[in-house]
């Protein structure tokens, strides 16, 4: 889904019963992280069987076989090489975009947890931003501002930051009502110090879980942009471009062109969602 929908799920640790040990959660985080790290390492260091940027005009739409394990596409690109090579751009951009969303969204969310005028301003601005078809706005920004990685990251932040703002705000409101925050205020801590020293460490786990979800949304947004022909320029491999070229020929039965990059996207998204679930259990099970 390229529809970035942010769902606020109430953080209610009390309502959860601990079903399994923390060890299982650590294993879950590791198991979800492993495929992504392996894919990233492979894209940089694994010697690829064919060049991901040089098509072979003699080998067009070959089905998967001993020569080309994942087959070749309509221009003669080796699908296996390009699927692995795509991770080189797609993954770092997604992580970068999600990280920037976190860096922008967390402080704004903390500020928005107060009841001063700027808190209302931040929340109303978030409302307006979320009422826009954000994928379209991202497409508009990237196509008007130019096809550069910086603009793609800006687009991801536009989609991702509102989620951080909302979640951090609702988490921070809960923390703010606790005794130790009252105590800190009574001892004369400045509001900013309360936020930095007392509230921030307690909501950081929420932000971390959201970070993995934002990365998985970012992967889908990047693939969606590339699918629509925006973002990455032609010879650079990317999953979205590959799926697009596969979608154009799938009606003729060439299923492999779109299938393998799609599987790569789904693998990364499932792994990230798995990490976020395990992290969430880890956090809630404290």
């Amino acid at each position: 889904m390229a529809t970035p929908i942010v769902i606020e799920e109430a953080a209610t640790p009390a309502a959860r019963t601990r079903r399994h040990s923390r060890f299982t959660d650590y294993v879950g985080v590791a198991a979800g992280t492993a495929p992504i790290v392996l894919l990233l390492l492979a894209s940089f260091f694994l010697p690829l069987p064919y060049s991901p940027t040089q098509p072979d005009p003699a080998a067009v739409t070959l089905p998967p076989g001993p020569q080309h394990w994942f087959g070749t596409d309509g221009s003669g690109f080796d699908v296996l090489s390009r699927t692995i090579a795509s991770a080189q751009v797609d993954l770092p951009v997604a992580f970068g975009g999600a990280l920037l969303s976190l860096i922008i969204g967390v402080p704004l969310g903390l500020l928005a947890s107060s009841d001063r005028w700027f808190a209302h301003l931040i929340m109303r601005a978030t409302d307006v931003l979320q009422s826009l078809p954000l994928l379209i706005v991202t497409v508009a920004v990237v196509s008007l501002a130019g096809n550069s990685i910086g603009n793609v990251i800006f687009g991801i932040v536009l989609v991702g930051a509102p989620g951080f703002i909302r979640l951090v705000r609702s988490g921070a409101i809960v923390v703010r009502s606790s005794r130790y925050v009252d105590a800190a205020i009574a001892m004369g801590c400045s509001p900013l110090r309360v936020l930095r020293v007392h509230v921030f460490p307690n909501i950081f786990s929420i932000a971390l879980v959201q970070f993995t979800l934002a990365t998985s949304t970012a992967i889908i947004v990047i693939a969606g942009l590339n699918f629509l022909g925006i973002g990455t320029a032609a010879p650079t491999p990317s999953w979205g471009v590959m799926i697009r070229s596969g979608a154009d020929v799938i009606g003729q039965g060439y299923w492999w062109v779109a299938t393998f990059p799609s599987l790569a996207v789904v693998l990364v998204v499932v792994s990230l969602n798995f990490v976020s679930r395990s992290l969430d259990d880890l956090v809630a099970g404290r």
């Binding site: 889904m1 889908i220 799938i250 779109a258 799609s262 996207v265 969602n273």
Partner: peptide, 22 residues
């Protein structure tokens, strides 16, 4: 629900076209 949420819409579209049309 988890499976549906992990599949981007463009992938789902391609799968549906392949299965039901091709």
């Amino acid at each position: 629900v988890g499976v549906l949420q992990s599949i981007p819409d463009f992938v789902l579209a391609v799968v549906l076209i392949y299965v039901f049309s091709a």
